[in-house]
């Protein structure tokens, strides 16, 4: 079952463009802030799990992926989708519950997108991990070089099936990259209240899966770690578990009112000072490559892009009630 291929490091994809990554992070930030507003206004439907504060992880990881690679996300998936290149208009229309949305309004945030190989964004914590492993197995069986990437929160390590899958991934050398976005909270609980230790690397190591820690607010570091993991998997080396330390500065969840969550002020301040977008802006190479005016243009273009998506979503029709019963069953092909 295991592939006895040595992890041949290929030249790999070109190093990602820092300006493109910065631009993508800004787009996610603007999008998320706008979606929260529009949820409060009642235009966006369902629960909104904002990705604000974690943008560097989605962007850095997706920059390392090839088009044929697989992606598995979860309920906090807008950032993953945008970084992966999911069509922003169709994503927004889906969050508005419209017929023209990515999944016809059935999914809201729990999207799939075949065009970008986004298999699912599950609402069940941990459930996407074996699914991503299955996609990795498919690549292995067909002898294709595709790698499967799954994003999970730190909370997913509570789920047994994640551990089961890590064991299988190690033994079967699956081309799988598990990206654990460790933000220190699992809904209302702080992670140290429910886990024996805060570092999750040793959990992955215990399953004999290659484990790498990275600063999740540093997009360059995330991109490098992801690139390494993807190449390792593509070369037959097997799975990697990346633990990216980060923080949700706009909290866990909102419905029709902004999140009432209260967190320690010093903790908030410390993480705000390490905002991933500011961090990227102030570090080389962007410090020298972008003027303040360039940066303002990037923000302005992101706002325009998001407004365009919002206007498009508003103009989309609602689905017809009878559409509720479509797609329950696959048709014979």
């Amino acid at each position: 079952m295991t592939m006895a291929v040595a992890p041949a490091r290929s030249a790999g994809p070109a190093a990602p463009d820092p300006v493109a990554m910065f631009t993508s992070m800004v787009l996610i930030r603007v999008f998320e802030e706008r979606m929260m507003e529009l949820r409060t206004a009642g235009e966006v439907i369902g629960p909104v799990h904002p990705y604000v504060g974690q943008e560097a992880i989605a962007v850095g990881v997706c920059a390392a992926m090839a088009p044929a690679d697989f992606l598995v996300s979860h309920y906090r998936g807008h950032g993953h989708a945008i970084a992966r290149g999911v069509d922003l208009d169709a994503l927004t229309a889906e969050l508005f519950g419209r017929a023209g949305g990515l999944c016809g309004g059935k999914a809201a945030a729990l999207i799939s997108d075949r065009r970008t190989n986004l298999l699912m964004s599950s609402g069940i914590v941990g459930a996407g991990v074996p699914v991503a492993a299955g996609a990795a197995m498919a690549a292995q069986v067909r002898g294709e070089p595709a790698v499967s990437v799954a994003f999970i929160g730190d909370g997913a390590l509570g789920s047994g099936v994640v551990h089961e899958t890590l064991t299988i991934a190690a033994v079967q050398r699956l081309p799988l990259v598990l990206v654990c976005e460790h933000n220190g909270y699992q809904a209302g609980n702080r992670t140290e209240e429910v886990y024996p230790e805060v570092s999750l690397l040793r959990l992955a190591e215990a399953h004999r899966v290659r484990a790498v820690g990275v600063d999740g607010n540093d997009v360059t570091a995330v991109a490098a770690a992801a690139r390494d993991a993807v190449e390792f998997a593509r070369g037959g080396g097997g799975a990697t578990f990346i633990e990216a330390q980060t923080y949700l500065t706009r909290f866990h969840l909102q419905f029709e009112r902004p999140s009432p969550e209260v967190r320690p002020a010093d903790e908030m301040a410390a993480w705000r000072a390490r905002d991933p977008i500011d961090t990227a802006r102030q570090s080389s190479p962007l410090r020298d490559r972008l003027s303040d005016a360039d940066v303002e243009t990037i923000w302005e273009q992101a706002r325009e892009r998001v407004e365009h998506a919002v206007e498009t979503a508003r103009s989309c029709a609602w689905p017809a009630p009878e559409d509720a019963a479509t797609h329950v069953w696959a048709e014979e092909s």
Binding site: R98, A107, W318, E322
Partner: peptide
């Protein structure tokens, strides 16, 4: 609820 999953979009959900 008909024997279909509950969709997210409000006009679809309303039918459920």
């Amino acid at each position: 609820q008909p024997d279909v999953p509950v969709p997210s979009s409000p006009p679809l959900e309303e039918a459920m």
